[in-house]
Amino acid sequence: MWRDAVLVAGKDLRVEARSRVGINQVVPFALLVLVLFAFALDSDRATLAGVGPGLFWVTVLFSGLLAIQRSFVIEADDDARDALRLSGLDGAGIFLGKAAAIAVQLAALEAVLAVGVVVLYNLQLHGPVMLLLTCVATTVGLAAAGTVYGIIAAGLRVRDTLLPLLVLPVLAPVLLAAARACEAALAGTPSEGWPWVRLLLVFATIYVTFGVVAFGPLLEES
């Protein structure tokens, strides 16, 4: 399973590195959303600092959807999904590999956006441990849930429009928990943030476990 996961993650990341879709399209889109939020809400930096964590995670979520869709678009070209099925790779390994590749892209995106919110929204970073844990748990949860719903939508003609409809409601609690945990960390009140971090960890664990078990059968039927 782990060998297959490494193989699939390496393949997906190599595809992204060569296509440069992430760098040329996803990252600029994410930065554009940050800027537009700043225009739309208020030019007062105090207001932006207050809503910064929420806007950060909304931007990660929307931009992450592009990365998730992309992960399954590359399998749709030239029936590559059939090749993935035929490969004999373990379903759990394929899930972990695809989720890991998405997580790496999300982590890179979050790093760029973190710089963006600090510069544009005048956020002061505090509570690095909680911020880091929040980012890790949220990233794993987004990647795992996105991979599960990505394969469910993959075989359908309407996959591009269906995926956000499936994923966004499911990820709403993640968005809420991540924003609250970050707000608590930045406000210097970590005790208010730990319950949200625990919720994120539970969510990530559930979707990783579900994906490991269900991805193989879902791939067969997609």
Partner: peptide, 17 residues
Amino acid sequence: RRRLGLLGHSTFLYDDL
């Protein structure tokens, strides 16, 4: 499946690789 190879109408290739 690891013991068989299928050459179908599609080439099963990743364009960016």
